[in-house]
Amino acid sequence: MNPKKVLIAVDASENALRAVEYTGEIVGNSEEFHIELLTIERFPDRDLFATDEEWKEKCAEHQQAFMDFLAKARQILINRGVLEDNIFERYIVSCKSPLRTPPLACSIGTNIAQEIMNIIKDEEFGTVVIGRRGVSKEVEFLFGSVSTKIVHYAKGCTVWVVS
């Protein structure tokens, strides 16, 4: 594993923003780093909407928020001195997306932590960075905590949890 091959798992949240900022501060303008911003698309269930149109509209809003976030995250890294050529973005489409035909490598969405772990293992990332919400046990139980699961299950890599 190469510790300088870094995966930052982000959604469009404040916690993810902190993870990006922290990584930028640590990495700075070091040439040897490969920084990859990973977003896994997650949409609300179709069942929550009366019509397909309402659902698609909401999904499009979510998708735009993810895209905007990736652009913002890239800029934050650049502003902290990270070399542009060392920053990569990956957007994994939800298998349930109503906005386009999902590619073969799409996200089932039921275990985001496992999907992140698979990428780390398959592509030999040495460091994974993730923001933590800092929530109560009750909320963690109900909503799940990607960061907790990654801390529990990660093997052969370093995990930076930014809270």
Partner: peptide, 15 residues
């Protein structure tokens, strides 16, 4: 019933 819980969709059933 359904709910806006896509981060952890089966947690409420398990609970």
């Amino acid at each position: 019933y359904t709910y806006d819980f896509y981060q952890n969709p089966f947690a409420l059933d398990l609970f």
